[in-house]
């Protein structure tokens, strides 16, 4: 009684968010929007532009899932989360998936009870220094003051790296990337450390990006990927295979422009299965046959998303590196669609 009264009242107020029952897919379909947790603002990965529209690499993953599940890539409610709130938001059902350059670690997967569905960006922690400092290696940073964003794995990696090399440093913890930039540019710290991709994205926003360099050392493995709650494997499968569809599409040469044509005229059976013209993959995953086609059509394949948001043509200018397809010597390797 108590419960129904409380939530009756809240529903009248229109403010009780939907239920987070075991079947996330049903909730998302009933709600008509996908609640996707993203960062509070990291240009290139997830940041609102001047019109308040979310853009970025992680955002594209959310949109692809929404396109696959709901048939509408814009039916996404982006929930900005901080390092502190992101896991609670996911655990409590406030968001359906988290795509917030989150590192896949043992304890997060096992102890915090989340399911990482894959890796959308292979990253590593790097250091940015002003060129004027004359530092060429992270091992030269003995005694330096280091800016770090709190609430991430970078703090722990940093402590490990300096301890392993037996050199000292002064940590300056900061809350947001914007404040880190401010501190670093004001010279309040000698070096700024976070994921190398984030550093490149940050450097792109500087007035004189050329005055700053990334040190060659990558001190940690940071496989970043979307994650969902533990215990809802159907939903986890949908997010996992949407991501795999984007990756496989690039491998198979399916792009946002030729996806319609490929779907009708392909001879490659795997492309046909992926795009739903052959087999019943869509039915198996609990969606319709065109789910992957819609995701690719609206967002492009992995390579297109990369090039559009963080690739070498953008101000962020990241090379594919580890994130190239396995056929090009990278680590991206989608399991077969069969």
């Amino acid at each position: 009684m108590n419960k129904s009264v409380l939530f009756g009242a809240l529903t009248v107020a229109g403010l009780a968010a939907g239920a987070a029952a075991a079947a996330t897919l049903d909730d998302v379909k009933a709600r008509g929007t996908l609640n996707c947790g993203v960062t509070t603002g990291l240009v290139g990965f997830a940041a609102p532009d001047a019109n308040g529209e979310w853009k970025g690499f992680d955002v594209a993953v959310c949109r692809a899932v929404a396109a696959a599940v709901l048939g509408d890539a814009t039916a996404v409610e982006f929930v900005p989360t901080t390092g502190k709130t992101r896991f609670t938001a996911l655990a409590s059902g406030e968001i359906d998936m988290l795509a917030r350059n989150t590192t896949w670690t043992f304890s997060r997967d096992v102890d915090l009870k989340f399911d990482f569905v894959g890796v959308n960006y292979y990253d590593g922690q790097g250091f940015m220094v002003p060129k004027a400092l004359g530092v060429s290696s992270a091992k030269d940073l003995d005694g330096a003051t280091v800016c770090i964003q709190t609430g991430t794995t970078t703090e722990l990696n940093l402590a490990d790296f300096f301890r392993a090399n037996n050199i000292s440093y002064e940590p300056v913890p900061i809350e947001t990337n914007a404040e880190g930039t401010q501190q670093y540019l004001a010279g309040a710290c000698d070096t700024y450390t976070t994921d190398a991709s984030g550093l490149a994205a940050t450097r792109a926003t500087f007035e004189n990006p050329g005055d700053h360099m990334l040190l060659p050392e990558i001190v940690s493995k940071e496989p970043l990927g979307p994650l969902v709650r533990h215990g809802d494997s159907e939903w986890g499968d949908i997010v996992r295979w949407t991501l795999n569809a984007l990756i496989a599409a690039e491998e198979l040469g399916v792009t946002s422009t030729n996806v319609g044509e490929m779907a009708t005229s392909t001879n490659n059976p795997e492309v046909a299965r992926l795009l739903g013209t052959e087999g019943t993959l869509g039915e198996m995953i609990g969606l319709d046959a065109d789910w992957a086609k819609r995701a690719i059509e609206t967002q492009g394949n992995y390579g297109e998303i990369f090039a559009q948001n963080i690739g070498e043509e953008t101000p962020i200018g990241l090379a594919r590196g580890l994130n190239a397809q396995w056929t090009d010597g990278g680590l991206l390797y989608s399991p077969p669609f069969r």
Partner: peptide, 26 residues
Amino acid sequence: SVISMFDILGMIRGPILASTDWNGLY
């Protein structure tokens, strides 16, 4: 603003200062 709600201070510290155009303006 500390718990990732974008009130006026959250807007300043987050999206506006993080944007490429206005980075460095306080």
